[in-house]
Structures are given as structure tokens and as C-alpha cells.
Simulated scan of single mutants.
Amino acid sequence: MDINQIKRIAIIGCGWLGFPLAKHFQKNGYLVNGSTTNINKLQLLAENNIAPFLIQLPNTIDENSLAHFLNADLLIINVPPGRSEEKGANYGDKMEHLKTEVLKSNIKKIIFISSTSVYDENNGWHTEESNSFANTASGLRMLAAEKTFTAVKELDVTVIRMAGLIGPERHPGRFFAGKEAIPNGLVPVNLIHLEDCIGVIEQIINQSLWNQTFNAAAPTHPSKSDFYDLASRQLYNKRAQFIKEKKDFKIISADKIVSTGYQFKHPDLMQWLVQNHQN
């Protein structure tokens, strides 16, 4: 199936990333199915010409609704495991249930939105070939979820490991403003802007880059102290004061997606902060 055969896209998880992604594809001529766990969001999806579905994994009340949702040519899975143990506990069950239903459908292509949290803090670079993985509960859950789908030979699955997400309603200045003695101030940051999240996903589809894994992180990695202090001063006019130390860290390489011809819309994170503040 090439790009011309993809007419309808199903996006499970229309939150901060999924909703603008759905709007983007709808405006570009695709038919889009969008799922939410919030009944109050169904109208918002419909108002944006996105076919709305109320999907709550793994205990979907109406399996027919899930089957109708999966009536598409491409599925984008955008369901994070959650940071708390309580939220993440049944993440594996959710993904297994979804896989079972996908295999009953006509879907053959999947983009799985993962996270760079799967990588260990190895004090160096991570490419997609890295096998140094984090031993955290959330990282292990995400890695297992990737394999839930990539192990299915009948499916063409591409995994995108997203770095920390920034952009509208996720200004980085909200994290550390006014705080002091914040540890690890000299470590590099790994972030990606919403517009590049959408851009990378679109690149995968346009170039038919299936059965691969891609890191998605801005190619610049300023220090934590430089970046978040500037962000904090911009948003709240308060300093974020870090300890000038460099302990455990990781740097995410985006060279692979760049090698496909993708050009980041926001490659320079410090410049983005300045421009964002001016606007």
C-alpha cells in the first residue's frame, strides 16, 4: 500500500498531539477517525470533521464501536502508558486488546507513537540501533507495547520514539520557575515541538517508511539550565536556578529521520523560545 492507497486514518488518542494531528490530516484531504475517552470531547471532534469514537481500552463497552473505528487504512496509536503505577498497570492489557481487534480488521499499517523514555541514561548518544534501555516501569511498558505490534508479521509497523513534547499549552517555563538548587543543570535536553511531531509522522506516511524505528527529537540539545531558566523567565519572569553539575543523561539522535529528507521546523530550541516569546 502506497500513500495514494491511504484514504482513511484512525487515530487512537486525540489528546494534545492526536487532536491537532487529526485536524492536520483532515485538512489535507484524508478521512479521519478520532478516538477519545472523554464523552464531552466527541462534539469537538465532530465539529472539526473528525469521525468521533468513544474508546476506553481495554474494557470497551461497545466492541462494534471499536470495529467501526478500525475501519481505516492506517492506524496511529497515540496512547501513553501514564506516569503513575496505577495508570500504567493495565497498559499492556490495553495494547494486547487493541492488537487483537486490529487483527480482526483490514488495517495493515500502523504508526506507534512511543517515547525516548525507553532509552537508558547512558551518558551518551542514542540512535535507533541502541540497545541500552531504561530499567524504569514506564520505559519497560513502552518497550513491551512496541513489541506487541512490531512482532506481528502481518502488519507493517513503524515506531516513532518522541522526545519531550513542547508547543501550544506545553510551554516549558511551567516546570521550574522560581525553584532553586535544581539538580543536573548541565545535562542536555531532548525535546520536540508539536509541529515537528506532526511533520515526522507525515514524513513516515509520505515516504512509505514502514517496518522501521525513528527517533524524533530536535537536533539541538541545550543544557537544562540554559533552556529552562530562559523559559521560566519568559513565562513567569522568575529564574530557575540549577546546580551546575552533569550526572546521568542521554542525548537522542535524530539523524535517521533527517537522512530521509525531513527538515525540522524548529531545530534550534533556544531560538524557538526567543521567537515564541516575541510572538
Rank of each mutant, 00 (worst) to 15 (best):
N78A: 15
E146F: 12
N33A: 10
L31Q: 04
E101A: 03
L70N: 04
L140S: 06
A177G: 13
D120C: 07
I251N: 04
I77S: 04
D2K: 04
D62F: 12
Y91V: 02
D196F: 03
V102T: 06
L54H: 15
K153L: 02
N33F: 02
S138I: 14
M142Q: 15
C14S: 06
E169C: 10
N211F: 11
L191T: 04
I55G: 12
S132G: 11
S114A: 03
N215P: 03
Y236K: 12
E245S: 15
N49D: 09
N71V: 04
V258P: 08
N276D: 14
T213M: 08
N71T: 15
I107C: 00
S114W: 01
N211Y: 11
A216G: 12
R239A: 14
Q212H: 07
H68Y: 04
L42V: 13
K246W: 14
R174H: 11
A10M: 10
L273N: 12
H24D: 01
K244F: 06
G34M: 05
R170P: 14
A163V: 04
S130W: 14
Q263I: 06
E121V: 08
L42Q: 10
F249E: 05
L66F: 02
S253V: 01
F25R: 13
I205C: 01
K87G: 04
I6H: 13
F25L: 09
Y236Q: 12
E180G: 05
D268H: 15
E128F: 06
F175V: 06
T37K: 13
Q203G: 03
F69N: 09
I160P: 02
V157P: 07
F112T: 00
A46R: 13
F149T: 03
A137R: 14
A46C: 02
L74Y: 08
K247E: 11
Y236T: 09
G88K: 15
E245W: 10
N90C: 08
G164S: 06
P58F: 04
